[in-house]
């Protein structure tokens, strides 16, 4: 994106004074389409060139730029301290990860989905999955049902098996004394036990990737996925600690990483994002940090 140009310079101008943003032919007040080129007037404004010319596929019809979605960087913090951060990273044109972090009574629900890069509209897939599963889990539905609803929501986005948006999935439901996990693909959950004073926390991997050695995933949500069942796991931590749920944009940079032993969940999430970005930020990054036990007062 070009920071030199004000992306909003056209927004408040009366349309009668401006030309068509695509072909520059004069257009009249109240016209819905440009008479010269047929461009739909009143389209969203391009973040780079400023033309009101962003089409339904998300490309600017004047400069061609694929528009970043509103998910480039977002943070969520719950009253109890649990925090989530999602970020586009440094090498992708948009953020195709999606996350939900919700409180339902004394239960905390989180869902993280990573849009499969080789599928179309992967950002819509992850958003649909997170919305469906997050709401279902917050209503108290079991993991398998929430996963099934997310799967159907993603499948519905496909126009055919050759045009099937897809995403990975990990969900956690944290209740007092118990954490229930479900996942498919290569999004992960870790347990970070509270470190002894002066020590750094060590992460314990709780999930098992559905992926072959070269990294290609073998399970995902989407119309082109075979009947996928989630892995499920329940743990009852005896000591206080922190649950970390994340996409591969973070965990690919965790090899040999020592987690900081202090700070709030949001501080930890931001610190982990910095670790991912400083290590290259190759992919979208999503991090959810949920303190468990009494470690967060």
């Amino acid at each position: 994106m070009n920071p030199d140009q004000d992306p909003r310079h056209d927004e408040d101008r009366p349309s009668g004074a401006a030309g068509c943003p695509v072909c520059l032919a004069p257009v009249l007040d109240g016209d819905t389409y440009c008479e010269a080129c047929g461009h739909a007037l009143g389209s969203p404004v391009c973040t780079s060139c400023g033309a009101a010319a962003v089409d339904a596929e998300g490309y600017c019809e004047r400069c061609g730029l694929r528009q970043p979605t509103g998910r480039d960087h977002a943070e969520t913090v719950l009253d109890g301290g649990a925090a989530a951060v999602t970020d586009r990273g440094l090498r992708r044109s948009r953020n195709e990860d999606a996350m939900a972090l919700l409180a339902a009574g004394d239960t905390i629900v989180t869902v993280v989905c990573d849009g499969v890069g080789s599928s179309p509209r992967a950002d819509e897939a992850s958003a649909a999955a997170v919305e469906a599963a997050g709401a279902a889990l917050a209503r108290g539905l079991p993991h398998r049902e929430a996963f099934g609803l997310a799967g159907r929501a993603v499948s519905k986005l496909a126009t055919s098996v050759d045009d099937a948006p897809a995403c990975t999935y990990v969900a956690a439901v944290a209740e007092p004394g118990r954490v229930r996990l479900a996942w498919a693909g290569d999004t992960r959950a870790y347990w970070l036990p509270r470190p002894r004073p002066g020590e750094k926390a060590q992460g314990v991997l709780l999930t098992e990737d559905d992926a072959v050695e070269t990294g290609e995933i073998t399970a995902w949500l989407g119309a082109d996925a075979e009947d996928v069942e989630p892995h499920v796991r329940t743990l009852a931590p005896e000591e206080p600690g922190t649950l970390l749920v994340c996409s591969d944009g973070l965990w690919r940079y965790l090899d040999g990483y020592a987690f900081p032993g202090t700070g709030t969940p949001l501080e930890l999430a931001r610190e982990l994002l910095r670790q991912a970005l400083h290590s290259g930020g190759q992919d979208n990054v999503t991090i959810v940090v949920i303190p468990l036990g009494d470690s967060h007062e």
Binding site: E57, Y59, C60, G64, L65, R66, R88, R92, S93, R94
Partner: peptide
């Protein structure tokens, strides 16, 4: 780096 455009329609 990271930017994607439609170069041809």
């Amino acid at each position: 780096v990271g930017q994607e455009i439609r170069a041809g329609w």
